[in-house]
Design a protein around this nucleic acid. Structure first.
Length: 903
RNA sequence: GGGAGUUUAGCUCAGCUGGUUCAGAGCAUCUGCCUUACAAGCAGAGGGUCACUGGUUCGAACCCAGUAACUCCCACCA
């Protein structure tokens, strides 16, 4: 035999992937078959394949390949997401390398560069997915910013605006004063930082001291009526204060109710307001309210109708509103104002304080909360039906535990801020008139038409508005505002709502994604599905776990703890990595990734490789008769049993369990057991019947392996073993085997036989008898209530071969001078006169006896318990009675053995 | 602070309807084997207070309550 001892994946992977592509096996067009559809969560165009993608897409590929092999019309739609923020960062970096800054070029010029970048780098990840074996219909590859998908975004924006669900409003954004842009929450890195907590005194107007009287400069209690003390980490923002807030229940401050105070240094008068939001036990219990520079303060300000005084410029310096320190950077201003406050006696004390501060991921600038005008989408109305779909089970979340989280989020949903201060993305289709009014329309022309309608209102100033006067909103839409349409838009469900594709493929079947984006994406897709098609977008959502390293840390670029998937695939083969990932990642459970998993996968496919090498090496003798009927019947039953199990696992999305069932069937039942049973002796031929059946077993095994390990299964499928295959006869499109009858009795009996063989091997191990030494075996049958004696003679060949036994004798009397062992209630003897150590034998039997006695005691105690007898189900009692009888019978045999040894 | 979850062998995890398929798998460890498919292998072995405390039950890894530790999501106290 000249085939390699190990399977070399690289060549086969390339060969078969292009073969599949050439023969269009991934392609799907609507037909009369039942569809099975998955839309891929579109990876970012900036993305490179990481372990999370690997897990995700492996699961999708397993599902899609399985569906294909079940005769469904399987369609897996790939694509990429334009990822405004991430891509913008990449483009800006590329421009910087070329010496260009964004603000020096026009939006159009910028977009040209951005598209250039996208065309060059944007498809990398999809190419990488091909290495994994992803069987997507690549002809259907979509991109969230391509023309039709953008049109869908504009249309839905206009639709929702018309419906009153989209509005403009002020919102606090994370402002990066170095990048001079808003950044999303995800781009803010929170770090714990040592800070100072400054205690600042505010004079109370009409306090007991008259205005203008000197403040004491010595240390003083904050509870004086002359002034109140506020604790803050940001003293430079006092000029933006709009109020001081205290808890109405705070008895220390009842005298301040209705009072006013003066902001130190600038002496602006602000009210003392009451709100239970303020905690009495933090700081001094007095909170300075600065609506322009703190989100909570903003909300408090809204509630109490406070003015918003913004004292910061976009670059983080103080503006005119601050009155003092104008033009100073916020941090310089902080130092200076502390000095000023101290000099004038407003600073009571300074304490060290630790708190979390947000930093910009990209510039490392301290994030400044900043108010700005944004677009919002109302959520409540959209959320309700989306929640019902899940609660009523029309959409299943797997695992189910996420339903609670989902409900909690949907019931407490906040409006969605959909605008972003970026250029890369769909520009908001809103157009401003010179007077500040706006219209929403897809094109300038349409907007002009709308605007003229506005203008036709008698109070407006007439018709001299020109189309060029309209200015489109500068911002783009949140990326999720396009991806929430994904399951519909990939089938052109907006452009052409009644086309064949959407009618056939939608709603899709399964969505496989990470739990982190359950709200950001999954929930919103459900809303969009309901809103725009009055239907769910998918029936099942499989939520994967997070891929972590051995130490449980999330894999990330910055930690450098993520292996390169491409390297892994080179090392262990795509098949090895696929099953390595799947093995220990049930839905919703994090995956502690370790390369040893891939090694396991590699060993697995190598085992199959070698099994086929073995079969291939056999020569067939047509004149031989088939002696292996028992083994064959047994494996057929075992195979059917495994199929049922695997089917059940898949039905419950227990994919790693399905893989393990497959693994055990292949490695244990097929390789270790079946093949060993039928294997002819060295250089001996095999009968034609057994050979044919075995080859067909192998073929069926390749089929059930295929969804997990597509490459090696396809490679072996085309092996000479199976004769010459037709061009389109491929494993990828083979139909999964269907299961036949399961002979339960045969399966049970074989379990006993396996135990007998194991015991024989144990004896060899214990007595240091070589595998090559032939032994003899006798059995004394002893049927009991539970254990019928099995027809050992039927299994004689198997026992002889696997145990290396010369002859199997059924005896009626105990055999002396032999090592004995018991399987179920039958006793076996291996004659072994020399070296038989009766003492050791007695000890062994004594130990077994002890165990049985204890076991019998526990059984008896149950049976003697009246309450057990009266309340347990009859079937349970039955079992206990059998246990009792069998154990007693076993004990009798043991006693006999012991007494014979004692002689 | 609100919500969800996890805790079973050294590690990663199964254990589905409470009861002999109930304490299991793989890796790791140990022992013996280069036995003509596979040392990426074969044959075996050891290893457990099912986090803790109570409760329900004839019977609990499983159901209930409490405690502890950890994880994730959301909101974050100036």
């Amino acid at each position: 035999m000249n085939i390699s001892k190990t399977y070399q994946p690289k060549e086969a992977e390339e060969k078969w992937y292009s073969y599949w592509l050439e023969h269009k096996f991934f392609k799907s067009v609507p037909d009369e078959r039942e569809p099975y559809t998955i839309v891929m969560p579109p990876p970012n165009v900036t993305g490179v394949l990481h372990m999370g993608h690997m897990l995700n897409n492996t699961i999708q590929d397993v599902l899609i390949r399985r569906a294909r092999m079940k005769g469904k019309n399987a369609c897996w739609v790939p694509g990429t997401d334009h990822a405004s923020i991430a891509t913008e960062a990449k483009v800006v970096a590329m421009l910087k390398e070329r010496g260009i800054t964004k603000k020096d070029i026009t939006r159009d010029e910028y977009m040209k560069y951005a598209w250039e970048w996208k065309e060059k780098y944007g498809g990398i990840i999809l190419e990488q997915l091909k290495k994994l074996g992803a069987s997507c219909d690549w002809d259907r590859t979509r991109f969230t910013m391509e023309h039709d998908l953008s049109e869908a975004v504009f249309d839905t924006f206009i639709h929702l605006h018309k419906k009153g669900l989209i509005y403009r409003g002020v919102r606090m954004v994370n402002w990066d004063p170095i990048g001079k842009t808003g950044v999303s929450d995800e781009e803010v890195i929170r770090k714990e930082v040592n800070q100072k907590l400054y205690y600042i005194r505010y004079k109370v107007v009409n306090g007991e001291l008259s205005e203008g009287s000197e403040l004491p400069t010595t240390h003083h209690s904050p509870l004086t009526t002359h002034y109140l003390t506020v604790a803050t980490t940001r003293p430079e923002t006092i000029m933006a204060d709009a109020a001081i807030c205290i808890n109405p229940n705070d008895e220390r401050y009842t005298h301040l109710h209705g009072k006013k105070v003066l902001i130190p240094l600038i002496n602006r008068e602000i009210p003392v307001i009451l709100d239970e939001y303020v905690s009495m036990d933090f700081g001094t219990g007095c909170l300075k309210v600065t609506p322009a520079h703190d989100l909570n303060d903003y909300e408090l300000g809204q509630k109490h109708n406070l003015p918003v005084i913004d004292i910061l410029n976009d670059d983080g310096t103080l503006n005119e509103n601050a009155k003092i320190l104008v033009g100073e950077d916020r941090f310089a201003a902080r130092k200076k104002i502390v000095v000023l406050l101290e000099t004038d006696g407003y600073l009571e004390k300074v304490e060290d304080y630790k708190s979390q501060i947000g930093f910009s991921e990209r510039t490392d600038a301290v994030i400044e909360p900043k108010l700005s005008m944004q677009w919002f989408c109302k959520m409540e109305e959209l959320a309700k039906p989306a929640l019902d779909y899940v609660l009523e089970g029309e959409i299943k979340l797997i695992p189910e535990k996420f339903v609670n989280t989902y409900r909690h989020w949907m019931e407490n949903i906040r409006d969605w801020c959909i605008s972003r201060q970026l250029w890369w993305g769909q520009q908001i289709p809103a157009w401003y008139l010179p007077d500040g009014q706006y219209v929403v329309a897809k094109t300038r022309e349409a907007a002009y038409g709308e605007a003229k309608n506005l203008r036709s209102h008698p109070s407006a100033d007439g018709s001299n508005l020109k189309a060029e006067d309209l200015v489109q909103d500068e911002d783009v839409l949140d990326t999720w505002f396009s991806s929430w349409l994904w399951p519909i838009s990939v089938f052109d469900g907006f452009k052409d709502p009644n086309n064949d594709d959407i009618n056939y493929y939608y709603p899709t079947n399964d969505l496989v994604t990470a739990p982190e984006i359950l709200f950001l994406w999954v929930a919103r897709m459900i809303m969009a599905g309901n809103e725009f098609r009055d239907e769910v977008p998918f029936k099942n959502v499989y939520l994967t776990g997070v891929v972590r390293d051995k130490l449980g840390r999330k894999m990330s670029k910055s930690l450098g703890n993520s292996p390169d998937p491409l390297d892994l695939m080179k090392k262990y083969g795509a098949d090895g990595v696929r099953v390595g990932m799947l093995r220990s990642s049930p839905a919703g459970n994090d995956l502690m990734f370790d390369e040893s998993h891939c090694e396991w996968g590699r060993n697995f496919f190598n085992k199959i490789w070698n099994a086929s090498r073995l079969i291939k090496g056999w020569t067939v003798d047509k004149d031989l008769k088939n002696n292996n009927r028992v083994a064959i019947d047994w494996f057929e039953s075992k195979f059917s049993e495994a199929l049922v199990e695997i089917e059940g696992n898949f039905a419950q999305y227990r994919i790693s369990e399905a893989l393990m069932s497959t693994y055990k069937l292949v490695w244990d039942n097929f390789c270790s057991e079946y093949l060993e049973m039928i294997k002819p002796g060295y250089q001996l031929p095999i009968d034609a019947d057994t050979y044919g059946v075995t080859v067909s077993f192998l073929e069926n095994i390749l089929k059930i392996l295929h969804p997990f390990m597509p490459f090696i299964s396809e490679e072996l499928w085309h092996d000479d073993l199976f004769g010459k295959r037709a061009e389109y006869d491929c494993c990828i499109v083979a139909q999964l085997p269907t299961y036949g009858k399961i002979n339960a009795q045969l399966l049970d009996e074989m379990e006993i036989i396996k135990q007998v063989i194991t015991k024989i091997k144990n004896i060899r191990n214990n007595k240091q008898i070589s595998q090559k030494e032939i032994l003899s075996l006798s059995v004394k049958e002893n049927p009991t209530i539970t254990y019928k004696t099995i027809p050992y003679k039927n299994y004689e060949l198997i026992i002889k071969k696997l145990g290396n036994i010369s002859d199997l004798n059924i005896v009626s009397e105990k055999l002396n001078g032999a090592i004995s062992f018991m399987v179920s209630t039958d006793e076996f003897y291996v004659p072994f006169e020399e070296n038989l150590d009766p003492v050791a034998e007695i000890t062994r039997l004594q130990k077994e006896k002890e165990y049985l006695v204890g076991f019998l005691r526990s059984v008896n105690s149950k049976l003697e318990n009246e309450r057990f007898m009266s309340s347990a189900k009859p079937a349970i009692i039955e079992v206990e009675l059998k246990k009792k009888a069998d154990t007693e019978s076993k004990l009798r045999i043991l006693e006999e053995s012991l007494s014979s040894l004692a002689n």
